[in-house]
């Protein structure tokens, strides 16, 4: 395992947050993957000593602020997803890229289902199947990043 610095983890998370903040609109907004959650999962699986459930929860609070949702909605969903990721972390890093992607897809989906439940408690309607499109685009992005060995670049490049 390469020596990962805290700074690099936080920097990538910040970049993911910025990507999340990009002013998309229309169909681009509909298919926009959850960049922040993907970055979180990436580090949860690779650097669990730096990126833990607390970081995921904090990121969720920031997402609540950005989206103007009820405080704690995204935070709860992120914390639960992070827990599921951390639980099987030691087994997951031994999987192949494809197997890992399948599990991460499940995590993305679970995150959206939790959010959907919380949102319906606070009075939103059922959104239709397009609600789950970001999971699909998210896993595509995940697979592309891992497959193109960009991830190794991110992890090994010296700052």
């Amino acid at each position: 395992m390469p020596n990962l610095s805290r700074r690099r983890v936080y920097f990538t998370l910040l970049v993911a947050l910025l990507l999340q903040l990009l002013p998309f609109s229309g169909w681009l907004l509909q298919i926009k993957p959850d960049f922040l959650l993907l970055a979180l999962l990436f580090w949860l699986l690779r650097a669990p000593n730096i990126c833990n459930i607390g970081i995921a929860w904090t990121a969720g609070i920031l997402m609540d602020l950005i989206s103007g949702d009820l405080f704690g909605q995204n935070a709860l969903a992120y914390a639960l997803t992070a827990f599921l990721a951390v639980m099987y972390q030691r087994r997951l890093i031994l999987f192949t890229v494809l197997q890992q992607s399948a599990y991460v897809f499940l995590l993305l989906f679970v995150n959206q289902v939790i959010l959907l439940m919380l949102k319906s408690f606070s009075g939103s309607e059922y959104f239709g199947w397009t609600y789950f499109v970001p999971s699909l685009t998210g896993i595509m992005l995940w697979y592309a990043v891992l497959h193109s060995r960009l991830s190794i670049n991110i992890m090994t490049r010296q700052q």
Partner: peptide, 18 residues
């Protein structure tokens, strides 16, 4: 992780309620 999950879930539930 389980302890952390419990702590943070309670925290976010409290936040949502308030």
């Amino acid at each position: 992780p389980f302890t952390r999950l419990i702590v943070f879930s309670t925290l976010s539930l409290a936040l949502m309620a308030s």
